[in-house]
Design a protein around this nucleic acid. Structure first.
Length: 244
DNA sequence: CCCGGTGTTACAAC
DNA sequence: GGTTGTAACACCGG
């Protein structure tokens, strides 16, 4: 159930296995040769947006939890995991997820400037990418993983509400200053998401996502699947400006 | 015919 | 019953 901040939490929690050797590995289908993992030592954990990577000397494993994926650490569910790793000091399990072997360096595949929660995140590069898409809608670009890796539907809705931008606004019609504000708010909210998630108070802080009434104007929110992404938007006509 | 873009569908688990 | 997400296709226009 993972937008970027959840993957950061996973990465931090997995650190206890960094530098540890895999004693045994299991999976719930025959699409993975888990013998490749056995005896291997983890050299690090990384994340890029919603992707999680387990790194080894000669290869990396990409895990994507999609919509309904989950993980457990030092406990497990009744069913077999899609990928389960046993270490001397515990276990790391992933369920209902995509698991992919990556042979080459991650740097050739992933643009770290696009990862909202990465130290290398560049808001300036994000603004440049947006300026190349003047006809795109705000509600679509905020889900574009090449621009905002890690942003999902919750982050999208909260950012649009916070910056008072209507989801159907055209990127090319949003003043540059406002566009920069939107870009920066993706990072700001993502780190607040992370903090609140750790405190188990994420939902309590939602102002728009899943809400019925605009907290500013006390009028009902609209709820509609908008844009080419057809994802749910919660928005208020009174305070969210439509740049058309 | 290929290529990029768009649209539809499938899948998953709570 | 709805969905914190992508990927695999089909289709279309250039």
């Amino acid at each position: 159930m993972p937008e970027g901040p959840i993957i950061v939490i996973l990465k931090e929690a997995a650190e206890q296995f960094n530098g540890k050797k895999i004693i045994a590995a299991v999976n719930d289908n025959h699409k993975l040769d888990t013998s490749l993992f056995e005896g291997q030592t983890v050299t690090g954990f990384k994340s890029h947006g919603k992707n999680f990577f387990i790194c080894f000397k000669h290869f990396n494993v990409r895990i994507h939890l999609m919509m309904f994926g989950s993980y457990t650490i030092n406990e497990h569910k009744a069913r077999k995991p899609r990928l389960g790793l046993q270490f001397a000091n515990g276990e790391l399990n992933f369920y209902t997820c995509v698991v992919e072997m990556i042979e080459g360096p991650l740097d050739e595949l992933y643009d770290w400037h696009a990862d909202v929660m990465n130290q290398k995140w560049s808001s300036a590069k994000a603004v440049e990418k947006l300026q190349d898409k003047p006809k795109a809608l705000a509600c679509d670009v905020l889900l574009d993983q090449h621009i905002f890796a890690g942003a999902g539907n919750i982050i999208k809705n909260e950012v649009l509400f916070r910056t008072k931008i209507h989801p159907k606004s055209l990127i090319g019609s949003i003043p540059t200053r406002k566009l920069k504000e939107m870009v920066d708010e993706v990072a700001t909210y993502s780190f607040e998401f992370l903090k609140w998630k750790k405190e188990f108070t994420l939902k309590k802080h939602w102002k728009a996502y899943g809400q019925k009434i605009c907290p500013r104007n006390k009028v009902p929110f609209h709820k509609a699947d908008l844009g080419k992404t057809h994802r749910g938007c919660y928005y208020c006509d009174l305070c969210q400006v439509l740049y058309a």
